[in-house]
Nucleic acid binder design. Sequence first.
DNA 1: ATAATCTACTAATACGCTTTAGTAAAAAGA
DNA 2: TCTTTTTACTAAAGCGTATTAGTAGATTAT
Lengths: 351, 351
Amino acid sequence: MIKKRVTSKMVAKQAGVSQTTVSFVLNKVEGQNISPETTERVIKAARDLGYVPDATARMLARGVSDNVALVLTRPHEAVLSDEFVSYIMTGIAKVLRKEPYRILVEFIDEDMQGQTYFNLAQGKEAVGLIVIPYNPSARDIETMKTLSEEGFPITTLGKLHDTINSVSTADEQGIQDALIHLYNLGHRSIGVISYAPQDSGFTPQGRLDTYEQFMMEKNLPFNPNYIIHGAFTPESGYQAALQLLSLDQPPTAILALNDVMAFGAMTAIQESGLKVPEDVAVIGYDGILLARYTSPALTTVEAPNIEQGKLAAKMLLDIIDNKPIESRHITLTPELIIRDSCGYHLKHNKK
Amino acid sequence: MIKKRVTSKMVAKQAGVSQTTVSFVLNKVEGQNISPETTERVIKAARDLGYVPDATARMLARGVSDNVALVLTRPHEAVLSDEFVSYIMTGIAKVLRKEPYRILVEFIDEDMQGQTYFNLAQGKEAVGLIVIPYNPSARDIETMKTLSEEGFPITTLGKLHDTINSVSTADEQGIQDALIHLYNLGHRSIGVISYAPQDSGFTPQGRLDTYEQFMMEKNLPFNPNYIIHGAFTPESGYQAALQLLSLDQPPTAILALNDVMAFGAMTAIQESGLKVPEDVAVIGYDGILLARYTSPALTTVEAPNIEQGKLAAKMLLDIIDNKPIESRHITLTPELIIRDSCGYHLKHNKK
DNA sequence: ATAATCTACTAATACGCTTTAGTAAAAAGA
DNA sequence: TCTTTTTACTAAAGCGTATTAGTAGATTAT
């Protein structure tokens, strides 16, 4: 049997004051002129009784939840093999742990996307939403837009719409940097391993477009066979690389849209008896910690994920607190980390 | 401005029934003899108005929260470089997504450990706790024990006390398997990279004890210098391996207590001009997906982390629902995955 | 000396739901 | 026919907090 809850009423009785006063004291409400003696009496009573305010009652009375929801629209098996979400969460946690908010993690089922946002918002499960929108349907965006315009705090990771605040990484820029890096090292046939199965709806079309555009700009042949659709996991990168290698004219370089698949690709290349980077260059994306510890060390584009999480959380808090927001849309710049998997150091006689 | 909330009262009015009836219908309360016509009218009204129940009010009225808290006592920077937490969360999410519970992630600050459990429980932030206890103080354990004995649902990952339900992995067994594997391959001097800084309180003493005991059993010299304390990250594994290699008599094999540090160790060995496994064997622990994609592929002990998360969640739900629990303590068995970083296949002429 | 202001509180209500206790009308039983 | 039971609901009482609107009594202003 759980002991009878200690309520603020009991604290009030113990301290010989009204429940109102207890609330004023414990919440440090200003302009109430509570005397120091009373204040101390209340605090002592609360401590003596082991009073813990009832979160559900407080939320109801205040009309606002304590929780910030992190909404994941990504198929959640992928959370596993890709550290992106971990990094984002870490960033969010770093900001929120100093605040009176908790993190509610919400995995969205594909069959009830739009509704969930409403439930979280209207149902007051959360004061605000940080959304990682991997596959937002038009309806989802519409829903978020509506909520956002009605004043409900939302921040998305990646810009979805002008009126929905966002913190993004300039992925197209990052992809471009990677491609230029490969190009400058002499590569003209570049394969791409996308991180989502075709038609899954999670295809990173923007990044693929960047690739296509780059090839056109450089007057390189665009070969659709050079785009393989992986599935976030290292194994899928492995398989994708094998597919690329089995082409009549395999690419001389492979860009994997996440590091984890780049790991798989490198292994596939090496197991095929080829060398990285001499025979095939590999470049990743994300900048996970392990990327420096492959052999050869993986050249990759490091996305500032923790920072992105932090900024998203900070922006959300600003919206919640009605603080003026400097910018509704922040874009972070990813950074190319040159290591050994593309042959840069070989070519430049370094290292 | 957010539109006026749609309350159950408004639904009631619209449907021409009492608010009580609305509650009965929408919650499918049994034994209330609501006619099909009324039921339908209520459902229609709710849908038409876009009614979303207020979670805070419902929780207060029911006296129970909607949330299951995942409590992380690990220093959360480590969440990053180690996939353990991601796996656990995935397991939990797989179970909870079918249930009317949400996941609340709570990072515990070291300076307020004990209190947090109480706050979550007494403050009704959560109906139950799944605790990942990396560094439980005696007081923490006492707190959890008290809560647990009072009937508050708690499941810990790893057994802390007889009266606190738990789902564990037989880590000592796993470590032993790893050591036996190395021993059978002829290794007599085995270094260990622990995953937590010395005196951090996170030191996995049980595993280190297993190591010491193993060495004694096999009549091998126990050299304290062979135990290096890392810090969860690949970089710390790298540094630790360098330290081991710089000893007068470096070990011929290294056991890293997580895979990520094993990655770092392998890189350190290779960069020192030595070969894995010919010169130094490396074995990891965790069984992360990437372990198969190092070169050589990492031999490791795979802990069933997703399963552990799932079982912890299931057990918690059973406690919450007052279902009879088969066992208060479940122990899962880790599995040695033999790949190439210890030379097994070399020795046995396979592959 | 009286009105105005300030100090230090409190009574009462609202938040939106669940749930208990009850009730009128219809059906069944005697 | 009258009582009992069943059907199909509803009124009203919480849940534990925050908050608004007061209110005595003390102090200051005029």
